[in-house]
Design a protein around this nucleic acid. Structure first.
Lengths: 336, 336
DNA sequence: CTGAAAGCGCTTACAG
DNA sequence: CTGAAAGCGCTTACAG
């Protein structure tokens, strides 16, 4: 390695390190001639300031480092969020520490601990179940936090989608199409998005003056296999549902594979509307009707918010709610 | 913040910071009683050593930090790689800096620059096109690098899949099924995986004593829309191919949507075999025959390799080739 | 076994 | 406008 340091530049320029430091970061406090000479030499030597050294120096200031925690990087919706966060952070000169926590509170806790020792300026995460205290502890220590996709009880900057409304609209679409027995394949109720999407399902029924058959509601784990098992169980009943609403993209995939395995046709035998409009939705046959969430935008907004809070820690927490949209394709039949 | 420092622990324990440091990291060089007292106090105070300070100290030693560069995080195959890298690195106590470079050599260069200023111990990446010199420069400075998924000319630790063989096998399957006009939708020829998969396509024909119709070979950009456009062009020809081989998962999605749009049936009108066995392959109707690559394992191996090289920089570079497998489902017809 | 001191690469009051 | 010096939180020879 033997990286070029401030001192190397100072020696080459015949000035002190202090002057070099100023020439590079507060140029107007250095005489023009000196500054230009220093800048030329720094460039020639390939000098790059050490972020690590800068970071150690400023216990108070900005460290230009944030952490992002993801519950499950194999879920492409979260990959979208990461993409948005990464783009904003790097453009602003921040580095990004990444942790995949697998929906596991212990791993999330370990990740947060690691981020503290890295002196991050703040963290962005969709909090996993059972994590409120860890987040609260972070905030108590003055570390800015932004929750994205999932809400937390605490007073935290939050960026979410309007889950309940979107789910209600999706289910209403099926109800308008004449469906009266709609299976709901939901995720872990400990997660806010799952609860809100289920609430939307109920609200749609309520709006239409219909009772919900509670046995049509399955709680899966948000992963593909869970969705498959739940759909298979629902579809093997004598009084099987004529439509399915699946509360995230992986469970949708599971449900689709259960439908194909059972030999049922979409939408004639069973209609389906899924949460998350992923790239593969258009590649399905028939193409999937789905709720589109702006994952990347959620990531970008979360990052903007975090950076703003890092620079002004005392602003009041904000809640940003983005509007998903329902993309109607053919899997819901002539339900439009 | 006001994090607890070594000095705080030292004061509370009535010893020097040196002793506290030793008690925590080289326990056997401290008297048992002292050590236990210090450890108890450190725990009570919630002391966490600053990674930043440790990092600054050791220009030579291990910084416990690596960088991972990804060409496109929205491609779930790369998300798998990230998952593998992350798991190994964090288990070994390394932090992971993440960059999404969008197949852009300039962004890759910027990311590598940023990683140097962060004092990373090494970097893992599927190199994007036109990046050889940047990687070489890194190595020249003694920074360990591991290429994953894509090869580079340079002498670098490399973890790839046997692309040519896997592609050959996939195309041979279609040939055995009686197909004689197989469209090839390949990726950017500047990328090793694209070239190797195309080579496999040619080899399969050669093995069968068949000529390749060069007009059946399309070079797309590796993304969904590129795959869609290429497939649409191929399928609109009078002498359209009876089967398609698509060289990555996103282009497969694009091809599928083109097929559905054209009203052709799979596999009766057009068979398809895709590269990358993604979760949605089973959810398709019919399910997709695909080449399965162990993305997560590739990530894990790459990380193991990098950590090994960080600890022993002078080992000779290695090449690890993993064997993909062909998962036969129904999209290729009765080609088994 | 323990401590005082130097040093990692910066930044920033404080002098001049 | 510029420099000497202190300090960020650690680790590690060097003494004792």
């Amino acid at each position: 390695m033997s990286a070029v340091t401030l001192k190397d530049v100072a020696d080459a320029a015949g000035v002190s390190v202090a002057t070099v430091s100023r020439a590079l970061s507060v140029p107007d406090r250095v005489a023009t001639a000196t500054r230009e000479r220093i800048q030329a030499i720094a460039k020639e030597l390939g000098y790059r300031p050490s972020r690590v050294a800068q970071r150690l120096r400023t216990t108070d200031g900005v460290n230009h480092l944030i952490g992002v925690l993801i519950p499950d990087i194999q879920n492409p919706f979260f990959a979208d969020i990461v993409r948005g966060v990464e783009a904003v952070a790097h453009r602003a000169g921040y580095s990004v520490l990444f942790h995949n926590v697998e929906e596991d509170p212990d791993r999330q806790r370990a990740a947060l601990e690691a981020l503290r020792t890295e002196h991050v300026d703040g963290v962005i995460l969709p909090p996993v179940h059972g994590a409120s205290e860890d987040i609260a502890a972070l905030q108590a220590d003055g570390l800015p936090v932004v929750c994205v996709d999932r809400r937390l009880v605490a007073e935290v900057d939050t960026v979410v989608a309007a889950n309940e409304e979107a789910a209600r609209e999706a289910v209403a679409l099926l109800l308008r199409g004449g469906h009266r027995r709609i299976g709901m394949i939901g995720g872990d109720a400990a997660i806010s998005t799952s609860r809100e999407r289920l609430a939307g399902y109920r609200r749609a029924h309520e709006d239409a003056g219909l009772e919900v058959d509670a046995t049509l509601i399955a709680e899966a784990d948000g992963r593909m296999e869970g969705g498959r098992a739940a759909a298979a169980a629902l579809l093997s009943r004598g009084d099987r549902p004529t439509a399915l609403f699946t509360a995230n993209n992986l469970m949708t995939l599971g449900a689709l594979s259960a439908i194909h395995a059972s030999g049922l046709r979409i939408p004639e035998d069973v209609a389906i509307v899924g949460y998350d409009d992923m790239p593969w939705a258009m590649a399905l046959n028939p193409p999937l009707t789905a709720v589109r969430q702006p994952g990347e935008e959620m990531g970008r907004i979360a990052a903007d918010l975090l950076l703003a809070r890092i620079e002004a820690p005392d602003r009041a927490p904000t809640l940003t709610v983005l509007q998903p949209s329902l993309v109607v394709r053919r899997s819901c039949g002539s339900c439009g």
